[in-house]
C-alpha cells in the first residue's frame, strides 16, 4: 500500500515534470538568457574591457554562462525541470501525502488539490517570503551557505504551518463546523506571513541595473506561474492516479492490503 502511494507520486511527478520541463525549454531558457544579456550589458559597461571572458572569481560573485555551451546548460535545465516534478511528486504526493492523507481536508479528488495547494505554499511560497524570485544579475546579500540554511528553514516553517492548519481543520470540522475550522486552519499561515513580513519586510522583486522593472516583474511572475502550474498538474494527475476507495485505502489488514496492491500499483 505504501508502495502504491510512492508509485502514484512518481507518476504524477513525471506528468508535472514534463509540463514544467516544457515551460523551462520553451519559455524560461530563452527568457533567462535574454534577461541575462540585458543585465550583462550593464555589467560589462561598468567593468574593464575584458570581452566575454568572465572568470568564476568575478567581483559580482554571480556570474554564469561562461564555460558550457548553451545547448548543454539548456538541456540540463530542462532535465532538471522534469526531475523537479519527480522530486516534488515523490516527496509531496508520495511520502508526505501517505502520512497526512487522513487530515487533508476534503475527500476524493478535492484532497489532491488541497494537498497540492498546501505543497505550493510550503515548497515555493514560504521561501519566497524571505527570498522573492530574483531575475538574473541580482547579487544576494547573503553568502550561499547562510542563504541555503535560511531557505531550508523557510520551507520547514511552511511545512509546520501547513500541517498545523490541516490538523486544526481536521479537529474542528466536526465539532465547530466548516467555517470555524477553515478560519482556524488558515491561522498558522497568516501568522507565518505576518512573522516573515515583520522580520524580512514585504517581499519585493529586485531589479538589476540595465533591466526594466517590467521585465524583472515579468520574470518573477513567470516563476510564480511556473510553480503554481507544476503543483496544479501534480494535483490533477494525482487525483486521476489515486484511488482512495480502492485497494490503496485498505488499512484494515496491512498484510492483505499489501498483497492486493503489490500486483497492480
Amino acid at each position: 500500500m505504501i508502495a502504491a502511494y510512492v508509485v502514484n507520486g512518481v507518476k504524477a511527478g513525471v506528468v508535472a515534470g514534463v509540463a514544467f520541463g516544457l515551460l523551462v525549454a520553451l519559455v524560461a531558457n530563452p527568457l533567462v538568457a535574454f534577461a541575462e544579456e540585458r543585465a550583462q550589458v550593464e555589467h560589462d559597461a561598468g567593468a574593464t574591457a575584458d570581452g566575454h571572458d568572465h572568470g568564476s572569481a568575478d567581483a559580482g560573485g554571480h556570474d554564469h554562462g561562461g564555460g558550457l555551451p548553451a545547448v548543454v546548460s539548456n538541456g540540463v535545465s530542462v532535465l532538471s525541470g522534469v526531475l523537479w516534478g519527480v522530486f516534488l511528486g515523490v516527496a509531496g504526493f508520495g511520502i508526505a501525502f501517505y502520512l497526512l492523507e487522513p487530515i487533508v481536508p476534503g475527500s476524493g479528488a478535492v484532497r489532491s488539490y488541497v494537498f497540492g495547494g498546501a505543497g505550493f505554499l510550503t515548497a515555493s511560497v514560504a521561501p519566497w517570503l524571505v527570498f522573492p524570485p530574483a531575475p538574473p544579475g541580482v547579487t544576494r546579500a547573503l553568502d550561499p551557505n547562510a542563504a541555503t540554511l535560511l531557505y531550508c528553514g523557510a520551507v520547514a516553517a511552511g511545512a509546520v504551518a501547513s500541517v498545523a492548519g490541516m490538523f486544526a481543520y481536521d479537529r474542528l470540522r466536526d465539532a465547530r463546523g466548516r467555517a470555524a475550522a477553515v478560519a482556524v486552519g488558515v491561522l498558522p499561515w497568516a501568522l507565518l506571513v505576518a512573522g516573515a513580513v515583520a522580520l524580512a519586510g514585504v517581499p519585493t522583486v529586485a531589479t538589476p541595473a540595465g533591466m526594466s522593472t517590467a521585465l524583472a516583474n515579468g520574470l518573477a511572475g513567470l516563476v510564480v506561474f511556473g510553480q503554481a502550474l507544476t503543483w496544479l498538474v501534480l494535483a490533477g494527475a494525482h487525483a486521476r492516479f489515486h484511488d482512495p476507495g480502492g485497494a490503496d485505502a485498505g488499512l484494515t489488514d496491512p498484510g492483505f492490503a499489501d498483497d492486493a496492491t503489490a500486483g497492480s500499483p
Binding site: 561562461g66 546548460s73 540540463v76 525541470g81 523537479w84 550561499p144 542563504a147 541555503t148 520574470l219 516563476v223
Partner: peptide, 14 residues
Amino acid sequence: EAMHNFRHAAGVVC
C-alpha cells in the same frame, strides 16, 4: 551553471 536556467525558472534561492 548548467542548472542555472532551471533554478531561475523554479525560483530556487541558491
